[in-house]
Design a protein around this nucleic acid. Structure first.
Lengths: 198, 198
DNA sequence: GTCTATAGAGGGATAGAC
DNA sequence: GTCTATCCCTCTATAGAC
């Protein structure tokens, strides 16, 4: 169902008027993600979202099973893509997994900037959420991959640094297009990882 | 008054029984910082803090002018130390400021782990707080220093990465003492910064 | 200085008309 | 499918007894 949903992201011009349901849902998700990104999940009320969309709180709760459901569905495509990366990395050997992890993680973050901003803004609360339980495991495996699956503490610390270094570029605007940005991120992350032994 | 307070941090055995006021205040600050760190500022209620301390909500509000005041006073020593670093870096030349910024920032984060965790856990909400208004400016100047005061976008992105890379080590426990940790952090951060041109 | 009790605001969620 | 009105809860903060 996750892949189902992400597949619908690039939906074309065809059946716009068929079901209004999807359209309103998407407006709600758009408004919510924007507000969550600047004020945090707990810092945003249903009233805030309703005001942004231009509807009532009751309408939000007709389309979603609660505030949490809005968050979960908003993050679903990003979580799905993270899962894909997780499975890709699982199939790689220890000596090739690190660079693939860096590139895959950078791509993931750049593809889901808003979602990453939301997650990054309320780490203590959100990663504890039941619906995001698998994310914690994926983060742990990503860290392991970034450390070339080495048990060396210094490798693990550096992996942690890379994990924290990438998402922060979502917060501040930067005068670069995405291709240049991807390049700088991958190069600098690799530089941090290599500097460990030097 | 900030330096006044930080100076009192290492207070000895002398006048413990003199004013109970300070003792209770510190218990409150301790409990609050621990809870803020794991559940976030908005995710922690006065009731939570009162339960941890073993007193009533009213007692908290007798000692502090409100929930915000607890946060601000809890962060005061860290903010003060950040200000010291800020002024030190201001006096350095462009070609020496980067390494000093890295070392100073790493030391700062390692010295105030809990405070950094609190700030890091609720970035959207907390940096907007009026009492923490100067922090935003200090962060901007630190970023500038980490970029060797270069206007190059790639230097600024890398500085941003370093800014995000250090605090995350506060969140996960790591099998290293602080001296080793400081060394890895500085070395890897320098590696990221140098990799930019390579 | 600490407590109980309570005010007052705002949150999420539901009921029922349209 | 959307609305208004309302319920119930939790939160911050205050009042006043001890």
């Amino acid at each position: 169902m996750l892949s189902d949903r992400s597949a619908r992201l690039g939906e074309g011009v065809g059946d716009l008027s068929r079901n209004v349901r999807s359209r309103t849902r998407r407006e709600i998700l758009d408004a919510a993600s924007g507000l969550f990104a600047v004020a945090g999940f707990k810092g945003t009320s249903l009233q805030d979202i309703a005001a942004e969309v231009g509807c009532s709180k009751a309408t939000l709760l007709y389309h979603f099973d609660g505030k949490d459901a809005i968050l979960v569905e908003m993050l679903a495509p990003a979580v799905g893509a993270f899962g894909v990366l997780d499975r890709q990395l699982a199939g790689l050997a220890d000596d090739t997994v690190q660079l693939a992890a860096v590139k895959g993680y950078v791509d993931l973050v750049l593809s889901f900037r808003r979602e990453v901003t939301v997650l990054h803004g309320d780490i203590p609360g959100l990663l504890r959420h039941p619906a995001l339980a698998d994310v914690q495991g994926m983060v742990d495996r990503l860290l392991d991959a970034l450390a070339s699956r080495s048990p060396d503490p210094s490798a693990q610390v550096t992996a942690l640094m890379v994990l924290g270094a990438i998402p922060i570029v979502c917060m501040k605007p930067v005068a670069m297009n995405d291709d240049e940005l991807r390049d700088v991120l991958v190069r600098s992350a690799a530089g941090a990882l290599n500097a460990r032994g030097a």
